[in-house]
Design a protein around this nucleic acid. Structure first.
Length: 261
DNA sequence: ATGGTCGCGTAGCGA
């Protein structure tokens, strides 16, 4: 079995206490991280490698930045989302990893927030989603197991937000955003979340402000999107809600899929 | 009540 996690850590250096504890206890085979807010010269490679992980990053100073940590070697590492050579924001990295039964491709995605909407930031978000759609379409042609993991900054449905009416004007929940997300799914991807026995609400983010965590005012924006070959082999899906507690938590919690790869 | 909290980096922006 292979466990693949996605977690927006909101700065790798500030989060190292929680990250090292998590890598020891949860010990995912693959961890896709977002918002590392570091470049290679400030990323804590040594500490993470000492825990048995190979590390690949697409870094940026102060903002954004994504990484893939993998217990197994990574091949065909690609940094940056294709489709716009002028885009300098570090929001995409992918790699191919061998499981016991088959190899799989995994991506760590930090989709733009897009607020305020409308405006240039929202335009950038939608354009970025168009590029992701094009790239996902290319990846699906391989007909291989593919897991597109990350902070999508998309609330798919009303059930995924504590106050749907209050969020209608937000870039994360606007009809055009959700329609674009559905377009991407429409290529033939499925959400790993659909594997859950969906009783209670299942949020992945709670704002630091206004006691959002204490009041369970959360949203579900961290997703695992699966190619058919990955969806056929998922055996478990978990949201590590408990990670929102503790010392200096990220505002996001890890989301983890287990695959028979 | 136009607030509140983080992180980066040391002012003010991004989320």
């Amino acid at each position: 079995m292979i466990t693949i996690a996605t977690w927006n850590v909101n700065s790798i250096r500030t989060r190292m206490h929680a990250v090292t504890k998590w890598l020891k206890e949860t010990a995912p085979d693959v961890a896709c991280l977002q918002e590392i807010k570091s470049t290679a010269d400030t990323f804590p490679f040594m500490e993470i490698e000492a825990l048995g992980y190979n590390v690949e990053i697409c870094g940026q100073k102060s903002y954004n930045g994504v990484a893939i940590l993998s217990k197994r070697p990574m091949e065909d590492v690609r940094k940056g989302l294709p489709g716009d050579e002028s885009d300098e924001q570090a929001r995409y990295i992918e790699a191919v990893i061998s499981g016991d039964k088959r190899s799989f491709r995994v991506a760590s995605i930090y989709l733009p927030n897009g607020n305020p909407a409308p405006g240039p930031k929202y335009h950038y978000k939608l354009a970025w989603m168009d590029r992701l759609k094009l790239h996902a379409k290319e990846l699906l042609k391989f007909e291989e197991a593919t897991v597109l993991a990350g902070d999508y900054n998309v609330i798919p449905e009303a059930k995924d937000v504590y106050d749907p009416k209050g969020w209608l004007g937000e870039a994360l929940f606007m009809p055009e955003t959700r329609a674009k997300f559905r377009e991407i799914l429409g290529l033939g991807l499925t959400e790993a979340f659909e594997q859950m026995d969906g009783r209670a609400e299942q949020y992945t983010f709670w704002d630091y402000q206004r006691g959002a965590w204490q009041n369970n005012e959360g949203i579900r924006i961290d997703h695992l999107l699966l190619s058919p070959q990955a969806a056929d082999n998922i055996v478990e899906f978990k949201i590590e809600r408990i990670m929102r507690d503790g010392i200096k938590p990220s505002d996001h919690v890890p989301v983890i899929g287990t695959f028979d790869f």
